[in-house]
Design a protein around this nucleic acid. Structure first.
Lengths: 253, 253
DNA sequence: CGTAGGGTTGAGAGGTCTCAAAGCGAGTGG
DNA sequence: CCACTCGCTTTGAGACCTCTCAACCCTACG
């Protein structure tokens, strides 16, 4: 079920660096090399770091979607954050050796895990990496807070609407989902784990939004936002504000 | 309602440094001085950083409880994290100028906000500060993930039980709440904002736990955990594991 | 003594969950 | 090429949990 690592990263991986990201615009010489050197391919569903594993200092997602999750013993799972291409994962645990979160490949993906020692070296060479870390982990924290607010206080509709808008903005930021059409590589079950809903209720909620002409969902989560103003209203978000908050840099939609 | 800053920190503040913390055990010469220099007293309810404000690099909580929260326009609020004496707040926003969270004094408290420039200097002088940052922000992230899991998937009882255990452990770690008796300076309303419940339901849930002989709650949140094994079972936590995860260093209870 | 801010308790409404069954599409082996 | 299976989606029905509203109590405080 979980084919572990597929294979060492093939040379073509370099092409994936074309994703426009915060760090690709930074003049950080060592970083691309370090990423290239550590990049590996993971099959969808495979664990990149197990909960409790020794963890690398930084995990760079080059291509594909990563999920950070946490589970109860009975299997109930919460997707705490989704990491998209161009984003990094920092500070997985309280000590530097144990991960508090499970890091799983949602889709097939290319990921570079950078060991602490190497990261320290890189930071010596390029102090800008510190601002990069700050920007990316701040953005992650902001996203999580925003989601947590709706998890604690919002309706199913609000949570779904918010999740769709968040993902739409983030995808746009990496050059995907222009014209507010995009694919979400999650099952309704996983979207439920992300929003704290049962898969059944995710389905109902999506269809209600669709019936009301706010979005359109085709085969397996091909989403088109038809009425983004209305969707933002349901999600109770200010799009401009959300954008500034959850993206390292941005323009509104 | 919100008396802003009460006054500049009086000399007696130094006494509050007695709290045993991760960083007090670190040989970091510059830090206590920097904290003393920037420490101020805030009255309960006052804003330390407003959502959207320019933010300091680090906020050090010397005494009292701080709440990090996020609100919807209609006033619905989620307490994303609670910061206790000895803990620091890092990386409030995606850019370094805008806070994604509201930072509010829950009780009267002593807080030192360290500007970016000074923090950078301190880090130059004492590289260990980097591990400190990593430990503390990792712990915060772990706590948030743990809570988010229960927010998304758990019952009211599980959330309350977890919150009580988390706070009990964290208080014990700073020398408070030995014998599993401790005071939580939150109203039931605020505990509801922390756990994603209405204040009414917080009340009912606490009383149910009390009726079942698991905890005892006296005037205004003086909590005594009577049956910690049962409470952990309800919270679905492994105390040892939780301890390692959410505290920078620890012993189980 | 009156007021205000919590806490407690009840009743009813509503949202979300679970269980269950059926539909659909892609991949597989006959 | 067709059955078959498997995973995912869709829909219905009923149960259950939590919310809201509302009243009352209690304590601290002016």
């Amino acid at each position: 079920m979980c084919p572990a690592v597929l294979k060492a990263a093939p040379p073509t991986l370099t092409q994936q660096f074309e994703v426009q990201t915060a760090w690709s615009r930074l003049a950080v010489d060592g970083l691309p090399a370090a990423i290239r050197q550590n990049a590996r391919l993971f099959g969808s569903g495979s664990q990149i770091v197990h909960e409790g594993d020794e963890v690398p200092a930084v995990i760079c997602v080059v291509g594909g979607w990563i999920g950070l999750s946490k589970s109860l013993d009975d299997g109930e799972t919460q997707l705490v954050d989704l990491i998209l291409p161009g984003e990094f994962i920092f500070a997985l645990g309280a000590d530097r050796f144990t991960s508090a979160l499970q890091v799983e490949a949602i889709t097939d993906c290319v990921v570079a895990t950078i060991p602490s020692a190497q990261w320290t070296q890189l930071k010596m060479a390029t102090p800008e990496l510190e601002s990069l870390r700050q920007a990316l982990s701040g953005a992650s924290r902001a996203r999580i807070a925003e989601r947590m607010l709706r998890l604690g206080r919002g309706s199913a509709e609000m949570r779904i609407a918010h999740a769709l808008l968040e993902l739409c903005l983030r995808l746009r930021a990496i050059g995907d989902g222009a014209d507010r059409t995009f694919h979400i590589p999650l099952t309704q079950q996983q979207l439920g784990e992300f929003t704290g809903l049962s898969s059944v209720h995710v389905c109902r909620t999506l269809r209600r939004l669709e019936r009301n002409g706010i979005i359109d969902v085709a085969d397996h989560m091909d989403v088109r936002v038809i009425n983004s103003a209305r969707l933002a209203e349901i999600a109770k978000v200010d799009l401009n504000h959300l954008c500034e908050e959850i993206l390292p840099d941005c323009e509104p939609m």
